[in-house]
Design a binder for these strands. Structure first.
Length: 722
DNA sequence: ATATAGAATCTTTTT
DNA sequence: GATTCTATAT
């Protein structure tokens, strides 16, 4: 058997991983070390050398983009078609299981998926019904609590009467929320995973079927799995435990949303792993950039341990630019971009990375002024736009009348005289009698509970939906969507309400929705089993919210958060806002674990760069309306001096001396010892928790009795020793 | 039912 | 400073 097309062009460790005997394997793949390549080639190996049937392969990713890339590259490499192989995201595959076995999963056939916005409005409604003040109980926090429990596999009934008042209240919200979802026939994202886990766990024949079927499970970005996903994988893998996991503990940056870095550390014992392969040769960056990344990440404890190296040249030093303020930071970047362009390079080779989205604003206005085209990642995504969601809500109602979230969204939009009062009456009635809003409305109309005017409006809404549901029955999907948009008179409403121009934009989006429906591929034989064409499209809209922003073909500078840069690469990278408090973020400074995650984020950001990396910080920055004086990020210190070339702003409006980059922490140059009691004019009295820096950069962390703990720059804080 | 003013809040994000 | 939600008035 000629295996050369599978193994050629792979380095030694890559080849080891790809061609290893059937066994569980952990591939520790550093940034830019060719992890997708290894995954894809492994699949080819299994199919062509091990003669595994595509039916017995399950390949899981986190994002649709990764899944799509995986599918594309498998097809490219393979000589035979890979029909029957399951390749998809955790959520997508869980969804598929639930559709196939909706009865065992105790779901209605037409169940719908809630996105986080829908989920939030459901939580809001629950809290209103439970008369919980949104000030005391922020719905977002409740939503977060619910998802956190689900991500740990905990159902509300298993935690009754536990904990203090706060916890008990949150549990009550969780319980009511679960009941509401049940009644509405909807599942949220976390529910997809939890429900499918329970489905497999509690149905012996289903478990047996899938454990037998999936002989090989491959997982991408393993460091991002949460507890539930880990358990899900374990369950599907069964006793055989043939899991091929690819990940990088140094790139774990989603701990704050439940990802457990421990999962990659526990892999060996839980999956009877017999082999670990490290991919450390990097094919992306210059050696200077890699050395900087290696030195930085070496400051983290509890690593599995890896050191990236390259055969590439040393490359240019890392540039460090000290800007006077945030505007000057942006101006400098703009100047550098223009210089880059004069060398015949392109704008889309450049990425500007920052910690928080708000930082993009200054760059945007500077670039507009200088006429530099740019694209900001992470805007509103297509299927999340208000007009799209509203149109979809109508379509969802025709599929499942009990979908309360969609009912609420469409009942008075566009306005048809069903006001807040009427809707709350329906909610109340539904709650009393455990009915969906739709059913409640129907009974209320029959029993004449409502006033004539509201009743008439509600009746015409009910009739409207019923009629449409019948009328669209024979139509093609795109006609159904189009018909719905016509009947609801969205376009007329928007152009009247928001004027020609803005309304025009919405109209275009709605037209885009029709064409999205037109090009949607329906696969009832596998992926979309047990779903109508329309239901499949609706699920697709929620699970794959589509690209953010319309992708213009114009050559643009790319701007994004460091988080969203993961997985991408650019010849030229600027990491901006490198100031303590901004990056690492203020909220991460107090906990070692959080600080390490910030450092990993920095590692991710650095390793995006291929040729040239520039770090920027500003001494002065306007944030939340007031001016802050920052000190350079501690991460700058952690990069060896010899890799860095400093550039200083020659500021005309030089009001303050440029702050020196602080040396490694030296105790008590601040003059404040840890434990010293101090008082502050605004925050009152407190105790010094930590101190660092010297001279103008000296600052201390104070734990105030009433105001909590804060970092203060001594020059401005005016502390009194007590 | 909508418009406006004041208040609160202000990492990171995919599904 | 900017956005987003809430309360209040019209």
């Amino acid at each position: 058997m000629d295996v050369s097309h599978i193994l050629d062009n792979l380095n030694k460790p890559q080849r080891d991983a790809v061609s290893s005997a059937p066994q569980s394997l952990l591939v520790l793949a550093g940034a830019g070390s060719g992890k997708t390549r290894v995954l894809v080639h492994r699949i080819a190996w299994l199919l062509e050398v091990e003669k595994t049937s595509p039916f017995s392969i399950l390949s899981v990713t986190f994002t649709n983009k990764a899944a799509k890339e995986m599918r594309g590259r498998i097809e490219e490499l393979l000589t035979t078609p890979s029909t029957g192989m399951w390749v998809g995201t955790f959520h997508g595959l869980a969804h598929r299981l639930l559709r196939r076995h909706y009865e065992e999963a105790k779901l209605p056939q037409g169940f719908q998926i809630l996105d986080s916005d829908d989920q939030l409005s459901m939580v809001r409604r629950i809290q209103k019904e439970l008369s919980l003040d949104t000030k005391q109980w922020p719905p977002r926090k409740s939503q977060w609590f619910i998802n956190k429990q689900k991500d740990q596999g905990i159902r509300s009934h298993s935690m009754e009467h536990k904990g203090d008042y706060t916890t008990r209240t949150l549990i009550a919200i969780y319980t009511a929320y679960e009941a509401l979802c049940e009644r509405s026939g909807v599942v949220d994202f976390a529910e997809l995973l939890l429900r499918s886990l329970e489905l497999i766990r509690d149905n012996a024949h289903i478990m047996q079927h899938y454990q037998q079927r999936f002989q090989h499970i491959l997982v991408d970005e393993f460091q991002d799995t949460n507890e539930l996903q880990y358990a899900w994988l374990q369950l599907l893998a069964g006793k055989k435990n043939l899991v091929f996991a690819v990940g990088d503990d140094d790139q774990s940056i989603y701990g704050w949303r439940g990802a457990k870095i421990e999962n990659i550390q526990n892999f060996a014992q839980d999956f009877n792993e017999v082999k670990t392969v490290k991919l450390e040769q990097n094919y992306r960056s210059t050696s200077n950039i890699l050395q900087a990344a290696n030195a930085l990440i070496a400051n983290n404890k509890h690593r599995l341990g890896k050191n990236l190296w390259t055969e590439d040249k040393v490359g240019e030093p890392i540039k460090l630019y000290a800007a006077y303020n945030e505007n000057e930071e942006a101006t400098h970047v703009a100047t550098e971009i223009q210089h880059w362009l004069t060398k015949g390079r392109q704008r889309d080779e450049i990425a500007i990375l920052y910690r928080s989205n708000a930082q993009s604003r200054v760059f945007e206005s500077t670039f507009i002024e200088k006429g530099i085209p740019y694209r900001v990642y992470g805007g509103l995504r297509f299927f999340e736009r208000a007009e799209i969601k509203s149109a979809l809500a109508y379509l969802r109602l025709t599929t499942n009348r009990d979908d309360d979230a969609s009912f609420e969204r469409s009942v008075n939009f566009p306005p048809r005289g069903i006001g807040d009062k009427t809707v709350s009456m329906i909610r109340e009635y539904g709650k009393q009698n455990n009915l969906s809003l739709w059913q409640a409305s129907k009974i209320m109309l029959q029993t004449n509970i409502l006033k004539a005017r509201a009743g008439n409006s509600l009746q015409s809404f009910i009739t409207f939906i019923n009629n449409i549901a019948t009328e669209i029955q024979p139509m093609l999907l795109s006609q159904q969507v189009d018909f719905m948009i016509q009947q609801t008179k969205f376009i007329e409403y928007y152009s009247k309400k928001e004027g020609e121009e803005k309304g025009k934009n919405r109209e275009e989006n709605l037209e885009e929705l029709v064409s999205a429906a037109n090009s949607f591929e329906y696969r009832p034989d596998n992926e979309h089993a047990n779903m109508s064409f329309l239901a499949a499209f609706l699920a697709h809209a929620t699970l794959e919210a589509g690209e953010g922003e319309n992708t213009d073909d114009e050559d643009c500078v790319q701007m994004m958060t460091m988080h969203s840069s993961k997985g991408l690469e650019f010849p030229r990278v600027f990491i901006c806002g490198m100031e303590d408090g901004l990056f690492p973020h203020q909220n991460s400074l107090n906990e070692e674990g959080k600080l390490e995650e910030e450092r990993r984020l920095c590692y991710v950001a650095i390793t995006r760069a291929r040729e040239q990396l520039t770090l920027c910080y500003a001494e002065q920055r306007r944030m939340h309306g007031s001016t802050l004086y920052g000190i350079p990020s501690q991460f700058i210190n952690e990069i060896p001096d010899e890799l860095i070339e400093s550039i200083r702003a020659i500021s005309k409006i030089k009001k303050k001396p440029i702050l020196p980059i602080p040396k490694k922490r030296t105790a008590n140059e601040t003059g404040y010892a840890i434990g010293q009691k101090v008082s502050h004019s605004k925050f009152g009295s407190g105790t010094i928790l930590d101190n660092e820096g010297a001279g103008a950069a000296a600052r201390v962390q104070v734990n105030f009795e009433t105001a909590g703990s804060k970092w203060l720059v001594l020059t401005y804080a005016n502390l009194q020793k007590l």
